[in-house]
Simulated scan of single mutants.
Amino acid sequence: MTAQEHLTYDAFVALAAADPAVVGLVLKGSQAHEGMTTEHSDHDLYVILADGATTELARFTGHRTPELDLVILSLDEFRAAGMPGFERYALARARIVLDRLGGVIAQILADKTRLAADEAFHEADAWLDAYANSLYRSVKNDRDGHALAARLDAADSVRFLLELLFALDRRPRPYNKYLEWELARFPLPGWDTELLLDAANHISATGDVPTQRRLFAQVEAAARRAGHDAVLDAWGDDLRLMRPQ
Rank of each mutant, 00 (worst) to 15 (best):
V71K: 07
F78G: 00
D99E: 04
T113R: 15
V97Q: 15
Q107F: 11
L128D: 13
Q107E: 13
E67C: 00
E67T: 12
R114F: 08
M83V: 10
E67D: 06
D118F: 12
T113I: 02
M83L: 14
S74V: 02
A106S: 09
P66N: 01
G102P: 10
A106L: 11
E77K: 10
Y89R: 06
D118M: 11
E119W: 08
A92V: 07
Y89P: 10
A117V: 14
H122A: 14
D111F: 04
P84D: 02
R93W: 13
D69K: 04
R95S: 13
A126P: 01
A110F: 12
L70S: 00
L101P: 09
D99N: 01
D118A: 15
W127Q: 15
D99L: 07
L75K: 06
R79P: 02
L115I: 09
A106K: 08
A90C: 14
V97N: 11
D69P: 02
I72N: 01
R100A: 12
L101W: 03
Q107I: 03
F78Q: 01
R95F: 12
A81T: 13
G102N: 08
W127S: 15
E123F: 15
H122Y: 15
I72V: 08
L109K: 06
V71W: 07
L98S: 09
M83K: 12
A90L: 12
F86S: 14
A80E: 12
K112T: 05
I96G: 05
S74N: 02
R114W: 06
